[in-house]
Design a protein around this nucleic acid. Structure first.
Lengths: 138, 138
DNA sequence: CCCCTTACCTACTTTGTCAATAGGTAAAAG
DNA sequence: CTTTTACCTATTGACAAAGTAGGTAAGGGG
């Protein structure tokens, strides 16, 4: 399972916000109900998106969340990397001190690296706008 | 993490067996030492490979495991699907009774399906023989 | 000033899977 | 009949994912 609920929920929420009227703030409670996501769990996700500057957040009545850029400017990759903390498919490709000891001679490592690259390209090549044009109804 | 140690170990073991002399049986103990994999843990993996007919297994002295087809006939995908129990990246794409209730209208589902297809094609397009030609030494 | 709504923060619990371990039984060779 | 090997069943420990609980702070409306 490469993508956990955190990243999947984040994507659905961003799509949800993209469907709102321009400039309108949507409260978390409403999103949670519409998307049938645990309210408390969603809080953590929204805070992450807010702190990273992906959405604007406003307190109090009439407040909530909204996008702050055109949908074309959000890639699926950027949202997933933020909420998932990266997209690596195997631990083998992590660099630095915790890198795999057999990296220099491993016959499978080049394959994992190509896979990571392919997946990164895939997600970076899809924007929120693209997602809006998918799905059958609603 | 799309691929756990089970699948990664399985791949390395298969590569290891591919390097053996034709027809020679390699005991599990030796593979575990060479690949620095827990012997007991590897037992479960080898039994899976054996029961699925991916390798021949012979008891007693001089026994062990060996491949039973040319390396060109093993795809990485087949090995991973067997040991990982599938390659789905998200739970969303599972069909049947446990399928996602929002499948018919979800704007992200088509993307997950394309991703799964892309990953499947990737792994099915690589064989053990391809892996033998990778890596820098030994 | 008070109340309500909202975002934001810290901590906890629950659940489940991965990775590994332990201790056996059964087959085959010498 | 002993050694070497594969095979089987159960259990443990570690860890993260998923969700829960109970607060504090900011902002608008009366």
């Amino acid at each position: 399972m490469i993508v956990s609920t955190k990243g999947r929920y984040a994507l659905r929420v961003m799509v949800s916000l993209a469907l709102a009227r321009d400039g309108e703030y949507i409260p978390l409670k409403q999103i949670a109900e519409e998307e049938q996501i645990s309210r408390k769990y969603l809080e953590a996700i929204m805070t992450t998106l807010s702190k990273a500057g992906f959405v604007d957040a406003v307190h109090g009545k009439g407040g909530g969340y909204r996008l702050n850029r055109p949908t074309r400017d959000y890639t699926v990759g950027s949202i997933l990397k933020l909420t998932e903390g990266g997209l690596a498919t195997v631990s083998c490709t992590t660099q630095g001190p915790s890198a795999c000891a057999r990296a220099t001679c491993c016959r499978t490592l080049p394959m994992w690296e190509r896979l990571d690259k392919m997946i990164d390209d895939f997600f970076e090549g899809i924007t929120l706008e693209d997602l809006l044009n998918e799905g059958q109804n609603g």
